[in-house]
Amino acid sequence: MIKLSGIHKTYQGVQPLHVLKGIDLHISKGEFVAIMGASGSGKSTLLNILGILDDYDEGEYLLDNTPIRHLKERQAAHYRNRMIGFIFQSFNLIPFKDAMENVALPLFYQGVSRRKRNELAMQYLEKVGLRDWAHHYPNELSGGQKQRVAIARALITQPRIILADEPTGALDSRTSVEVMNLLKALHQQGMTIVVVTHESGVAYQTQKIVHIKDGLIERIEDNVDPTASPFGHGTVMK
C-alpha cells in the first residue's frame, strides 16, 4: 500500500536541516503500523510526506501504486481527499460546524449533494457511537468524542489509509483506550492504519513498530501480540 524508498527531506533555511536521511519503508494493505520516535526524530515530517501535506527532495513514494511526487496543489488535494483519512492530536474540527457537518465536510469538496453527504455523515457517526451527538458543536463534546468525530470524518471518504498523528496525545487514559479500540476495530475490518506516536503504550497496540531516530529507521519491530502491553494486558500507558 505504501512504498517509500530512499526518502530525503531537508528544510531550507539559514541553517539547512536535513530531517529525513533516506527512509525505506514498506507498509502492506491491512497493516496496523506505529511510527515511534523522540521529538525531532523526523516522524512528523515523515507523516506529512505520507499524508501528501509536504513534498520530499529525493527518493520515491508510491501510495497504492500511484507515484506521489511534485504534485500540483489541485492534484494533491484530490489525493488527500480520496485516499487519505487524517486524525490529528488536536482533533482539528471546525468549531462553528456541528459534528455532522464536520464529518460531511470532505464530501462537500467532492461535490456530493448536501442531503447525501449528511445522510452518510450520520451513518459514520453511528459507527463511532455518536449518532445522538450529531448536532452538537465541538465545544460541547468531550475530547474522546471529538476524536471519534474526527475518526468518522477520516472514514467518510473511504480512504486507502488512515494516518493518525498522536491520536491519543490530548486524551486521558480512559478515552485513549476508547480511541485505540476504535482504531483496532477498523484494522480488523481491513483498514490500513499508520499511527505516529511517542507513547510506547499506544505503539504496542499495533502490529508493527517503526522506530525512527535522527532521520533514519533505527529498527522495525514486529509486535506479535498487540494485546500484551508491557504495562499489563489491554492497557495503554499513560
Binding site: 499524508g51 488535494a77 488527500r80 481527499n81 480520496r82 482539528n92 469538496y109 471518504t157
Partner: peptide
Amino acid sequence: GIRRAIGATP
C-alpha cells in the same frame, strides 16, 4: 489548513 488537509483545493 484543516480544509486543505481534508481535500479542499486552492
